[in-house]
Design a protein around this nucleic acid. Structure first.
Length: 830
RNA sequence: GCCGAAGUGGCGGAACCGGCAGACGCGACGGUCUCAAACACCGUUGGGGGCAACCCCGUGUGGGUUCGAGUCCCACCUUCGGCACCA
């Protein structure tokens, strides 16, 4: 039992027991668990099934915030529960250690990104350990460690070999504040996801991953046990459209021999209604087709649209600008001559970067045509159309008119017929288009994994041979706020020799998007020290895919989509089993400041977890975060509410360490055991459904029941012991320290965390006597006590014996009786 | 504009399949212990009425289905999240 000197409680407890002191017991157990390797997870545990639980690894910002606790504490409770359920559970942790803030700190404060990051890891590791989670620290990964990013580079080479990584010159999202390019997913409302700066477009030679090649497979997420809204967001992001591609003949072929404009449309049934074409300003044909007399106007327009920010350009409010090129093409279906315009409402990056404009049946084309007096030709008849010119675009389906041989067909059939006809004639055919763009991974920054490519004067683009990995980041570089990557300024890094011809070569100076590091970190946990491969096939099969992933929904279309793409590529490379990285995913809500707004230093509403832990203890803080509300909702952190959880844990402590007089007592035996088993049933169901708030409430109720018996002075010995035992076991996942301490005191055993999860007795989860509400005409008029298995006749007999009920029934005729066993009796009278 | 989620006491929230609305907490109020306090302990706490047993009203708004609706259906309002010239 307890070995340290007992401190006397103050007046309140009044019973001369030792007080609950979370700080002391939490430190002691954390040390003991670490010393014993209690949370080391073997790759194979005889007789146990492996189960992989994962919480997103934190970015090394320097301090854990309440959000980290909110994400990780319930996730830990879940992992601990499955461990008690008999699984060999892996619950690893590591650090997402590459990224911009480290480099910005270097520029601002003169600290090297590596030192800054490592110091942060050191601090965060301590904070994470204070949480008392069952992390297996021997599996820790650090994405900025050369032993890790060597494999990030290896992955790049595998993708390169399979032509899944390629370099192209394209308009890229450029954040002028971060001085780097961004992937599409990292631009939110035209602004940088990190720093909120307006994003510009720049033509740049950049590395991409061909994620669109997996678009169809990524779209298929039905089988995943993920929140529906996340699956919907991903489907919308991928944005599959079925339609047709069609070729329009240029009236005069371009200088380079191009003789057509290709467009994508989802409405081939409107092809006869084309009255003009629009090219995106970036479209290569703009330069080619523009006629002499329009050149000045077109050049000025293209120049001007280059200065429009992406957010302005994409605003639907903005009126549609454009300029005529002077050139024409031919609608092959009608032989009509169609003018070619340039307009920035057409996006260069979607479809072919050119559209056929059908003002009669597209709102945007209609607006464009109206302003310029371009003709509107109706080819789909609106219902009850009188043949008069349209005053607005009719965008719904209808019957084809003015469409020659296709007249009379409804839109759906028309789409098919026109597409087939285009294919027959060699003018196009059916096509599927995605909104998803290939993933731009080049970053013009230092603190990331260097792209393992070099450029040789003789051999061109040469991948760094695998045995020469990692391409290490040089430590000794200058961090200047020039907008140039320090790598580009480092001669020692840039200048190298070609592995093919031994001639002089220059290294690629861009680094990889840090989302690349986080796309495979969960594989590395399975085999963190492997020097031959990112993960061995054997261990990949032992652990992957992840059984339960938890993290914030801000990653719904970034990390989670990239990781899915990456896993499919890894599967095709032969490294991992299965098709999806995360079988189950749960997205927790966001914890806000006490004022209901996002916590931020500038708002002064940041709650520091360290202070909460110091004041209340880790168990209390963990349980309070679980108790706040539904985990997937999040919400404001109410600093005053935690005292309720603290009082509860004190009650748990007091009731367990200072039991009442114990004897044989049939009444308390029955009541206690029923309460215990009912609670266990609730807690079990709640944990599995991740309803931690009601789980804590159930545990509080059981504690209150125990306390009631303690205050009464006596209880049945066996039932009391059983109830305390069940309370501590079901408390263990959420409050591991106090559960361990009290478990040792009552049972003398170690550790509560290796105990099997108890089974409840079904029969004990129901009451023997139940209270049934008695209604007359749907209004509650009284309550009766009946045996749980009483039938309608029995319940009615008891009810009608009640004076109040009899009074209500007097003078009325019973029309109907509804009986819900164990709950309610409703007597309907006339 | 489109898609998704949600509106319940002073506050966070609970209520499995349509069956006693407000579990569990916070706060507030009253009390105990204390020189005094508290993160100690006990009690009360949706609103209104009644001395009382009790009665009436009440889950964003308006309608509907039902013996019975927070829960189902229709319309609307509000809030939050996502997407937004994607042809």
């Amino acid at each position: 039992m307890a070995t340290e000197p007992k401190t006397q409680s103050r007046t309140g407890a009044g019973r001369g027991v030792e007080r609950y002191d979370p700080t002391t017991i939490e430190r002691r157990w954390q040390e003991r668990w670490a010393a014993d390797g209690l949370y080391r997870t073997p790759d194979n545990a005889p007789g146990k099934q492996n189960r992989y639980h994962l919480t997103m690894f934190p970015y090394t910002s320097g301090d854990l915030h309440v959000g980290h606790w909110f994400a990780k504490a319930p996730s830990d409770a879940l992992a601990r529960y499955y461990r008690m359920r008999g699984y060999n559970v892996m619950f690893p942790i590591g650090f997402d250690a590459f990224g911009l803030p480290a480099e910005n700190a270097a520029i601002k404060d003169g600290v090297h990104p590596r030192d800054w990051t490592n110091a942060n890891i050191e601090r965060m590791r301590g904070q994470l350990k204070r949480m008392g989670a069952m992390f297996d620290w021997q599996r820790e990964v650090n994405s900025s460690d050369p032993a890790y990013y060597r494999w990030t580079q290896w992955w790049f080479l595998q993708l390169y070999q399979r032509a899944l990584a390629y370099k192209k010159l394209a308009a890229a999202n450029w954040c002028p504040s971060c001085n780097t390019t961004l992937a599409n997913e990292q631009v939110i409302d035209g602004r940088c996801e990190r720093c909120d700066t307006l994003v510009e477009q720049r033509q740049m030679d950049q590395w991409f991953f061909a994620s669109t090649r997996y678009a169809e497979e990524l779209l298929d997420n039905d089988g995943l046990e993920w929140p529906e809204h996340v699956k919907v967001m991903q489907r919308n992001w991928i944005g599959r459209s079925e339609g047709a591609e069609a070729s329009f003949a240029l009236e005069q072929p371009a200088a380079d021999g191009t003789d057509e404009i290709r467009i994508f449309t989802t409405r081939p049934d409107t092809l006869h209604g084309v009255t003009f074409m629009v090219l995106a300003p970036e479209h290569p044909l703009v330069e080619q087709v523009t006629r002499l007399e329009q050149r000045a106007a077109v050049d000025a327009y293209v120049e001007q649209t280059g200065h429009v920010t992406e957010i302005e350009r994409q605003s639907t409010e903005r009126h549609k600008t454009g300029v005529f090129t002077g050139a024409y093409c031919i609608n092959r279906l009608t032989g009509e001559r169609v003018p070619i315009w340039v307009g920035d409402y057409v996006l260069a990056t979607y479809g072919t970067g050119a559209i056929m404009a059908v003002p009669a049946h597209d709102q945007r084309d209609f607006e464009f045509a109206q302003e310029r007096g371009l003709p509107v030709k109706a080819v789909i008849a609106p219902p009850e159309w009188d043949g008069q010119p349209l005053t607005q675009a009719y965008v719904d389906e209808g019957e084809m008119v003015n469409s020659g041989r296709f007249d009379g067909l409804p839109s759906a059939e028309g789409n098919r017929a026109v597409t087939e006809y285009l294919a027959e004639q060699g003018w196009g055919g059916s096509r599927i288009q995605y909104r998803l763009r290939d993933w731009l991974i080049s970053r013009q920054r230092y603190w990331g994994a260097p792209i393992p490519i070099l450029y040789c004067e003789q051999c061109g683009t040469v991948p760094v041979p695998e045995d020469q990995l990692p391409v290490e980041l040089p430590y000794d570089v200058e961090f200047l706020p020039t907008g140039q990557s320090p790598l580009a300024l480092s001669d020692a890094f840039v200048n190298t020799t070609c592995p093919k011809c031994d001639g002089p070569a220059r290294r690629e100076t861009d680094t990889m998007d840090t989302f690349m590091c986080s796309s495979w970190y969960f594989m590395r946990y399975a085999d963190p020290d492997n020097t031959e491969a990112p993960v061995s096939r054997e261990l990949a099969e032992a652990w992957l895919p992840v059984d339960q992933y938890t993290g914030g929904s801000e990653h719904a279309v970034m990390h989670l989509l990239y990781a899915r793409f990456f896993y499919k590529a890894a599967r095709d490379i032969g490294v991992v089993p299965g098709n999806e990285p995360f079988t189950r995913y749960f997205s927790q809500g966001q914890i806000l400041g006490p004022d209901g707004r996002r916590m931020s230093k500038s708002r002064g509403n940041v709650v520091a977890p360290d202070a909460q832990v110091e004041k209340w203890g880790a168990d209390c803080f963990r349980a309070y975060l679980m108790f706040l509300g539904p985990w997937d909702q999040g919400g404001p952190y109410d600093v005053d509410g935690i005292v309720g959880v603290s009082r509860w844990l004190n009650r748990v402590w007091n009731v367990v360490t200072d039991p009442p007089e114990l004897a044989d007592d049939a009444v308390s035996a029955s009541e206690l055991r029923r309460a215990a088993h009912r609670t266990l049933a609730r807690v079990t169901a709640d944990i599995e459904a991740k309803r931690f708030n009601t789980m804590v409430a159930a545990l509080m109720e059981l504690t209150n029941t125990l306390q009631r018996f303690r205050d009464a002075g006596s209880a049945d010995r066996a039932a009391w012991d059983e109830t305390v035992r069940l309370l501590l076991l079901s408390l263990a996942p959420s409050c591991p320290h106090i559960a361990e301490e009290l478990w040792e005191r009552v049972s003398g055993e170690y550790s509560v965390h290796v105990q099997p999860w108890p089974e409840y007795e079904e029969a004990l989860t129901h009451e023997e006597l139940v209270t049934v509400a008695v209604q007359v005409n749907g209004k509650v008029r009284g309550h009766i006590q009946v045996p749980a298995d009483a039938d309608e006749a029995a319940a009615r007999a008891v009810a009608e014996a009640e004076p109040r009920i009899r009074e209500q029934l007097q003078g009325h005729e019973v029309a109907r009786v509804i009986f819900v066993p164990g709950r309610l009796l409703n007597i309907v009278v006339r």
